[in-house]
Write a protein that binds this DNA or RNA. Structure first.
Length: 431
DNA sequence: TCTACTAACACTTTTGAACCGC
DNA sequence: AGCGGTTCAAAAGTGTTAGTAG
């Protein structure tokens, strides 16, 4: 629908892209359990707006040395470390609900994907420090394949079972608060619980498209956007957390994961042992159904709360209050007369590493499923396409090669809710 | 027959509008 | 009129289950 080149001819005809990236990280050292700066961020992908990058407002130290992700699937050489210019030195991310993630990870996290889109649970919920309180930043999340294998549940564990499906178009979820000031992001944890995953390659909603039975890794990107309506960027940092790796499924395979989800997800409270939709109650209902009309619902099970039941819910009034208290500048009337789609449109190529070992994108993937379909979600997604061979992202050969939902929500994404509207961060840290 | 997937279902939480009292 | 609290219905999210396709 809207390709960056259409809206911003100054970008030229293509993004210059960089090196393949290692993707497998199953052997992350345990010592790296906190936030990781994604080491293989390909800064050459920033070329499209490199000339516009602002000078650092103050002297920035070199980014801390971080280990390169181990590559287990081939002899690819590691990409060069990110240039300091494109990094955000001193910025660190920590996974808020790390314990819950680790609990799932110990069993083998599975994420349901559906045609309509399914939320992630647990959701990625992070705290950020080290930002410039005055500067503005974007928070983005994407999900990338961990390796080139398809997996199969063998009754007790997951095993690789053949080669992965062709890589699908990458999409990026932009946190609806973006862009906001560093102070805003640092005030409270940032939750990505509204991210939805789908297995529908024709998905018109902008959800993140995944293959079932594949292993994936969420990544969180932080981008300094100093001017909302320009191509000026002050730095980029990407993070990922090994414990958030998961296998996408259309139905849960491991019953232990099911139990964990039911125990931890408030929406599944009805399936807990004391819930009305627990197995005992369901069986009873079936029997009653067979006997005849079902009487009034029994209260024998009740719906008591399970201790520790988390809630990735949104944000109540405290968030709203905080928003009015320190409304990010973009919520005011943008000087350019509207939300800065440019800021988002400029980003995709900058944030997508396409591990070279991964299968190439399916060339038969339909690029333009339904141009006329409205996009009902308020969060914006960006979509990218890897180049031939999946080794690098290249300029789209034509406008139509970007799916019409490249930016959902019409001509501009809707990451700028009006004053007092919903903010997607800072809900009570319940897990 | 087996595996993966889909849609319907019943339940829950979330959300926002309507209403009320101060 | 404005504010804050409560109530209620609709929307959305959840795992389960039966059915389907390959």
């Amino acid at each position: 629908m809207y390709h960056p080149r259409e809206l911003y001819p100054s970008l030229g005809t293509g993004y210059r892209l960089g090196h393949p990236q290692p993707g497998a990280d199953s052997s992350f050292p345990p010592a790296l359990a906190e936030g990781y700066r994604y080491p293989d961020l390909d800064t050459s992908k920033l070329d499209c707006f490199l000339s516009g990058i602002e000078a650092a407002p103050h002297t920035l130290s070199a980014p801390p040395p971080l280990p390169l992700l181990p590559t287990t699937l081939g002899p690819e050489t590691a990409p060069p470390p990110p240039e300091a210019l494109h990094s955000l030195p001193g910025v660190s991310l920590s996974l808020e609900n790390q314990e819950l993630w680790k609990e799932f990870s110990a069993v083998g996290t599975e994420m349901i994907i559906t045609k309509a889109g399914r939320r992630m649970f647990p959701a990625c919920r992070v705290s950020v420090t080290g930002l410039d309180p005055e500067a503005r930043y974007l928070f983005l999340l994407d999900v990338v394949p961990v390796d080139g294998a398809r997996y199969r549940w063998q009754g007790q564990h997951w095993e690789p079972s053949g080669k992965a499906e062709p890589r699908l178009p990458d999409r990026v979820y932009i946190h609806p608060d973006s862009p906001a000031t560093g102070a805003h992001w640092m005030r409270q944890p940032v939750s990505f619980h509204r991210v939805k995953l789908t297995n529908s390659t024709l998905d018109p909603h902008g959800h993140l498209i995944l293959h079932s039975m594949h292993k994936y890794q969420p990544r969180i990107h932080l981008v300094r956007a100093t001017q909302l309506c320009s191509q000026h960027w002050g730095g980029v940092a990407s993070f990922r957390f090994p414990e958030t790796t998961f296998i996408s499924v259309t139905a849960y395979q491991n019953p232990r994961i099911t139990q964990l989800k039911i125990a931890a997800n408030p929406f599944a409270k009805g399936f807990r042992e004391n819930g009305r939709n627990c197995k005992r109650e369901r069986d009873a209902r079936v029997k009653r159904k067979l006997r005849g009309p079902e009487p009034a619902a029994t209260e024998t099970c009740g719906s008591g709360d399970t201790p520790g039941g988390p809630c990735d819910s949104t944000l109540g009034g405290d968030i709203r209050d905080s928003d009015t208290e320190q409304t990010p500048a973009p919520r005011e009337a943008p000087p350019c007369g509207g939300p800065s789609a440019e800021a988002y449109l400029l980003h995709p190529a900058a944030f997508h590493g396409a591990p070279g070992h991964l299968p190439a994108r399916n060339p038969s993937f339909p690029e333009a499923p339904d141009p006329g379909r409205p996009a009902p979600y308020s969060a914006a997604f960006l979509e990218l396409q890897p180049g031939p061979g999946g080794s690098a992202y290249q300029a789209a050969p034509s406008v139509t090669s970007f799916a019409p939902h490249f930016i959902q929500g019409g001509p501009f994404p809707l990451p700028y809710p009006g004053p007092g509207s919903y903010l997607d961060m800072g809900s009570k840290p319940m897990y």
